[in-house]
Simulated scan of single mutants.
Amino acid sequence: MEDGGLGIGALARATGTTVETIRYYERTGLLPPPPRTGAGYRRYGAAARARLGFVRRARELGFPLGRIRALLDLADQRERPCAAVDAIAREHLAAVERKLADLAALRRELAGLIEHCGHGTVSECRILEALGPG
């Protein structure tokens, strides 16, 4: 990184995000507005790059933006106990487990429909019949 920081395009390339995503994160407060050059160009330092990395990793783990905002707020309070962070992670894990259970039920249902396919004509198709009017 040069002494003046990275421009928005360089930050996007360095972190594997898009310029529009960075602008969106700024508008929503996930990234603080960066300092600007005399010509009005954004300049991002190491802290902004690290924060963007945090947001990206949290998104990869499926955290919604509101929870990421809460985690960032907690991360900025370094002396606080981590119980609140743990609670957010546990809530997210429970949501992931519910989604996995829902997907497993969906998988069983689809597999059952496919298994009972008679390979006849469309008018006799059990899959289409199970999906409803047709």
Rank of each mutant, 00 (worst) to 15 (best):
L65S: 09
L65I: 03
L65Y: 07
G66F: 10
I68G: 11
R69M: 02
R69W: 07
A70P: 10
A70M: 12
A70N: 13
A70F: 11
A70K: 15
A70W: 11
L71M: 08
L71P: 02
L71I: 04
L71V: 05
L71R: 09
L72Y: 10
D73L: 08
D73W: 05
D73S: 12
L74N: 09
L74P: 10
L74D: 13
L74Y: 09
A75E: 15
A75Q: 15
A75R: 15
A75H: 15
A75W: 15
D76Y: 11
D76W: 09
Q77P: 05
Q77N: 15
Q77A: 12
Q77E: 14
Q77G: 06
R78L: 06
E79F: 07
E79P: 09
R80G: 01
R80F: 02
R80Q: 12
P81A: 11
P81F: 05
C82P: 04
C82Y: 01
A83Q: 08
A83Y: 04
A83S: 11
A83K: 06
A84R: 12
V85W: 00
V85S: 03
V85H: 01
V85E: 05
D86I: 02
D86H: 03
D86C: 01
A87E: 10
I88E: 02
I88F: 02
A89Y: 00
R90Y: 00
R90E: 03
E91N: 07
E91R: 05
H92R: 03
H92N: 00
H92W: 01
H92L: 00
H92Y: 05
H92A: 02
L93I: 06
L93M: 08
L93T: 12
A94W: 04
A94H: 14
A95M: 08
A95F: 03
A95W: 10
V96F: 10
V96P: 08
E97I: 03
R98N: 03
R98W: 02
R98D: 11
R98M: 03
K99E: 13
K99Q: 13
K99W: 01
K99D: 04
K99I: 00
K99C: 03
L100V: 04
